[in-house]
């Protein structure tokens, strides 16, 4: 098998990995780069647990071919609190009780971040749409939506 060179920027750092051409981005992030915050909940793009931000957009890393990330800018949950304490989303998720089992949390926060990166005044409906691809079986979403609203507030005032 011909391994291919994949060069991408992950959480601000350029990484180069030899990957198999059929690998998914999830395989590479989770197994090769050890970013275990990228969860595998279904492997079929049906639950959002593996959500990462690729070139500014939330995607399911479990169905993105790794090679599609050539030259891409990737953010995972591990990149959010880089040295500067928790990201406002991480903090509000904790404060609002938006975390229960925590398995959906990294993907949920990444979807939320992709939304807030573009829109600091999201309506309830926009939040719901942004999170519709992230399955959570614990919370009923009430406190997650509240956490996103609060984080938006903090980020807006911080800017």
């Amino acid at each position: 098998m011909n391994k291919k060179t994949l060069t991408m920027v992950v959480n601000g750092k350029t990484v180069e990995k030899m990957v198999e051409p059929g690998d998914t981005l999830l395989d590479v992030l989770r197994e090769e780069l050890g970013l275990k915050g990228v969860k595998k909940g279904c492997g079929k793009g049906e639950c959002g647990a593996c959500t990462i931000i690729m070139n500014g957009k939330a995607v399911n890393s479990c169905i993105v071919p790794a090679m599609q990330a050539v030259g891409a800018e990737i953010q995972t949950i591990e990149g959010l609190s880089n040295g500067n304490g928790l990201h406002p989303l991480q903090q509000t998720f904790i404060d609002c009780g938006a975390i229960q089992c925590g398995f959906c949390t990294p993907g949920m926060i990444m979807s939320s971040k992709a939304l807030l990166d573009k829109n600091l005044k999201p309506t309830k409906e926009e939040i719901k749409q942004a999170l519709a691809g992230n399955v959570c079986r614990c919370t009923g979403f009430v406190k997650i939506e509240e956490a996103v609203e609060k984080a938006a507030e903090i980020l807006k005032n911080g800017k």
Partner: peptide, 9 residues
């Protein structure tokens, strides 16, 4: 279609 993540891809 699907979800935002799917539509983004």
């Amino acid at each position: 279609v699907g979800s935002l993540q799917i539509r983004n891809t």
